[in-house]
Amino acid sequence: MPNITTSIVGFDSAWTDNPKAPGALCVIRQNEDGAHLYLPPRLTSFADALDVIRSESRDAQKCVVALDQPTIVPNLSGSRPVDKVAGSLISWIGGGVQPASRSKIGMFDDGAPIWRFKQALGAIEDPEQARTALSGTFLLEVFPALALAAIESVFCSRLAAPKYNPANRKRFKLADWQAVVEAVRRFGLSAPLRHVEEWCSFAARHETPSKSDQDKLDALICGLIGLHWLVAPRDQSMMIGDLQHGYMISPAVGGVHERLIAAAKLRGVPLS
């Protein structure tokens, strides 16, 4: 088997580490033959995710964790500058950004599981270094809702955000679930990522997807964001914010949306 040059772990943590509402992860492995979906999305806890990441860090030269949860939260209340910038687009398309602050007990207070996870992981949190380094374990903050608006133009217009969360029964639309799966399938194939089509074909056939199914889909989106950040030209991705106040990594396949540019300029938030 060719050497594993890079392992990308897509991790939708679900933030609170509640056993009744677990997160999900997937693993994408990359070598000289290209990238493939090594571990299809599955439910996970923070502890299980840490075990998987440690195993991947041993097997691969470089391991990159793409995490759907704020990883740098210095503000005691309110929301981070990056949340406001992302929210300028997400609210326009009809979605929402949950504000991150230390006042969120169980999510970002001093005893929250994310900080124990980061300490145990011991990863380097420097997105630009993650792109260029040949070895090491790295952590990236990603946001699937923002990525979907970037990879599928249909989702990026007024109140057009897909309603694909089965937990919200009043708003959930099966057609939106299928549209998101199809967008993820195309994005994965463009990488290119082997085995993504099989997984997406199975997911698209769900007539009554559950919240766990959505978590798994979001974990795959996280992994694809990480893969895209590493292998696509730099100008096809964006980093909103900085390593002091918080940031997000997202695809920018068609360029950075004008609403994000305007919001970043208004608030003095770096965008590259």
Rank of each mutant, 00 (worst) to 15 (best):
F143D: 03
F143S: 06
P144S: 10
L146G: 05
L146W: 00
A147N: 08
A147M: 08
I151F: 04
I151R: 06
S153F: 02
V154L: 11
V154Y: 04
V154G: 03
F155S: 01
A160C: 10
A161V: 04
A167S: 15
N168Y: 07
N168R: 05
L174C: 02
A175R: 12
Q178M: 09
A183Y: 02
V184Y: 03
V184M: 03
R186H: 12
F187N: 02
F187E: 05
P192F: 09
L193I: 14
E198V: 15
E198C: 11
C200T: 09
C200R: 11
F202A: 14
H206L: 15
E207H: 15
T208Q: 13
S210C: 08
K211D: 14
D215M: 10
D215V: 14
D218S: 06
D218T: 11
C222F: 11
G226Y: 00
G226R: 03
W229T: 09
W229P: 10
W229I: 04
L230Q: 07
L230G: 09
V231S: 10
A232H: 13
A232R: 12
D235E: 04
M239V: 12
I240K: 06
L243V: 12
M248G: 01
I249E: 03
S250N: 00
V253E: 09
G254I: 04
R259T: 02
L260V: 05
I261V: 12
A262F: 00
A263Y: 02
